[in-house]
């Protein structure tokens, strides 16, 4: 009896349904909690680009007080509604999904880090980054000073870089190499910042180069391409914000 086809099929169906219900139930119950966790993680990364959040308890409160955000398109114009007419929230713009679209169709979130309680007193502009490392996607946030040139900080994250090699882009020591570097040259041309091959050299007098990661040149190349690529997409907004003062930048 236990070997008959009917028994095998019935058993399989019952098992599938039971396990399926268990999984979908869990997913339903934990869904909201996971959403909060992801939101917290995103906000941690954004804040991490401009400040040391180690041991910070109230990330969400801090974020609410210090960050305001909006979305621009490829021409640097502020977009308030998506195609469906819903109000756009910069935090909900999925950079990874937008990365799959053509650059001119993408939405580009901008996060302003401002003094507590005063949205106009901007201290830095934080822009998301997205690209490809050696094995998988890499992403991060770039914090620029109000001159839109000097880097105030970066955070990088990755999906599957090699631990101890490419994965080192998440280390504070590596990210700190970008602090104070500049993305435009004297003529205002975008050169971004290049992570060099090899490690242990001093690039402190070159504003467009940082020390590399030994054994992770391809990840470093990915980071370089990501920086240049994403800054270039934000360039229309940057030039507008620079010439028009804050008029464009304020909602």
């Amino acid at each position: 009896m236990r070997q008959s086809n009917v028994y095998v099929i019935t058993f399989s169906i019952i098992l599938t349904v039971v396990l399926g219900l268990l999984l979908s139930g869990t997913s339903q119950i934990l869904g909201p909690k996971q959403k909060v966790a992801i939101e917290l993680d995103t906000k941690k990364q954004i804040l991490g680009a401009v400040m040391d959040i180690e041991g910070e308890q109230d990330i969400l409160g801090l974020y609410q007080k210090r960050i305001s955000s909006f979305v621009v398109d490829a021409n640097g114009e502020i977009v308030e509604k998506n195609e469906k007419g819903e109000t756009l929230i910069a935090e909900n713009v999925d950079v990874a999904k937008n990365y799959k679209k053509a650059p001119e169709d993408r939405l580009y979130p901008v996060f302003k880090f401002h003094a507590e309680g005063n949205e106009d007193d901007v201290e830095s502009y934080i822009l998301p980054l997205y690209g490809a490392g050696l094995w998988d996607a890499i992403w991060g946030y770039l914090a620029l000073d109000t001159d839109f040139n000097t880097i105030k900080g970066v955070v990088f994250a990755h999906a599957g870089e090699t631990p101890g090699l490419g994965a080192r882009i998440t280390e504070d020591g590596v990210q700190a190499r970008y602090d104070g570097k500049q993305i435009f040259d004297e003529n205002g041309e975008l050169v971004a910042v290049e992570m060099m091959k090899g490690e242990g050299k001093d690039y402190s007098d070159d504003p467009h180069k940082v020390d590399g990661m030994s054994g992770a040149t391809i990840t470093a190349n990915g980071v370089n391409a990501m920086l240049k690529n994403y800054i270039s997409h934000y360039q229309p907004y940057i030039s507008k914000a620079k010439s028009g003062g804050d008029a464009v930048a304020i909602k």
């Binding site: 268990l22 869990t26 934990l30 909690k33 996971q34 966790a37 992801i38």
Partner: peptide
């Protein structure tokens, strides 16, 4: 199924570990 449950729980309660 059990592994997926573990993964879902980590995602909800220990996102960094996830």
């Amino acid at each position: 199924t059990l592994v997926t449950l573990v993964s879902e729980f980590l995602k909800a309660f220990a996102y960094d570990m996830y």
